[in-house]
Nucleic acid binder design. Structure first.
Lengths: 209, 209
DNA sequence: TAATCAATATACCCGTGAGTATAGAGGAGA
DNA sequence: TCTCCTCTATACTCACGGGTATATTGATTA
């Protein structure tokens, strides 16, 4: 076990090396997703990504295999954040509407994160057949948990008896959109946007008497 | 002037030739936009587009110049449909909410048309700097007319006093989304989807007592 | 009839970028 | 110490696809 004030040794243990490796992988992914979001997947070359990290292309291949893998990892990160957002609120207290509101808020925030944005900006066209199938399946699962929440709300009377499928699409569309236009350095914070959007969707445009 | 029952002559007049030309241009655009929507812009080669029409690549260049021009024409078509949707309802009777509803309905329908879909699916990244600037300007104009309508509605009391900008974004996002997932041959008609979406957005999720 | 123009094709050029072959440096383990 | 494994770079191959040079055909005009 390491001494309290031991000078950091240049000799790395097995775990340290593995942690290093993971860290580098992560750095590549972060750099890649930023560039994909900014310039688009096809317009970003792995040479560009490598250059932005001061490394060379084979290094990326060493850590991630090929370009599609890089994208799939990025998208998967995003999908996991989204799934997590959908699932944590499942266990929360409150009626259907309250739980849905909490999910929507989180979902919306993820969409303004690098990896979340990547999910909206990545069309099936960019992936191979298998990749696209997996992608669709995971998105469908998220859609289904939102629908389940809507159904709960309708059942307990906290949500109006709407067409569940269309409602889920409308919500997803509205909340995905910031992934397209929101810029992190802009004047509006992600939280403000999320709250505002969710309120509008829940209360609707028509005035409540 | 042509005889009533004249056999169609193989000799074409000046206007007929120009009409032919226009028709061919149009056919190229239609074929291109379909393929762009299905496979993505970068993944579609002009050779593919040409082959799908039984012609060769230089013919496309003859009519349209270069690949970006093809995309710009497609996007412009879509933007014009959208602008038209926003503007026709301006002159209509009714309060702000009624006019907004009519605009949203039309807007939503355009998004399920080939050229409309192209607008949502085309990110700024695909265009050159000038192209992107023009594109953004036209989208902004559409956004502004929707905001104006919302403001009218708030002023006359038919719409709740919401944050106008956020409301416009939420509406646009929700109505753009079908451009991503709706398939024309699916079971739901564009009209059904449009009506359903607009209703949900206007009345909101929370039950009206 | 000669000259011209529009429309179209074939065959090419060439830049870009994904992916790889190969080699070297340095630590880890035998 | 010798060997092996991990990490990284240099320098390459190769396909794809945007764009073009050039030829041909047939109709229009002088």
């Amino acid at each position: 076990m390491p001494q309290p004030n031991a000078a950091p040794s240049p000799f790395r243990s097995r775990e340290e090396r593995e942690r290093d490796r993971e860290e580098k992988r992560e750095a590549v992914l972060r750099a890649a997703v930023r560039m994909f979001n900014a310039r688009g997947f096809h317009a970003t070359s792995l040479d560009d990504v490598a250059a932005s990290l001061g490394i060379s292309k084979p290094t990326i291949y060493h850590y991630l295999g090929n370009k599609e893998q890089v994208l799939i990892e990025c998208v998967t990160r995003g999908l996991e954040l989204l799934s997590a957002a959908a699932d944590t609120a499942r266990a929360q207290p409150g009626n259907g509407l309250a739980r849905l509101r909490s999910v929507l808020r989180r979902y919306s925030l993820v969409m303004m994160d690098d990896f979340g944005r990547c999910v909206v900006r990545t069309g099936d066209e960019f992936l191979s057949a298998e990749g696209a199938a997996l992608f669709r399946a995971r998105k469908r699962a998220i859609d289904l948990s939102i629908r389940a929440l809507i159904e709960d709300g309708i059942a307990d009377g906290s949500i109006a008896p709407l067409d569940v499928r269309m409602t889920a699409f409308a919500l997803a569309g509205a909340l995905n959109w910031p992934g397209r236009w929101h810029e992190p350095d802009g004047p509006l914070s992600a939280e403000q946007i999320a709250d505002s959007m969710v309120d509008i969707l829940i209360s609707g445009l028509a005035p409540r008497t």
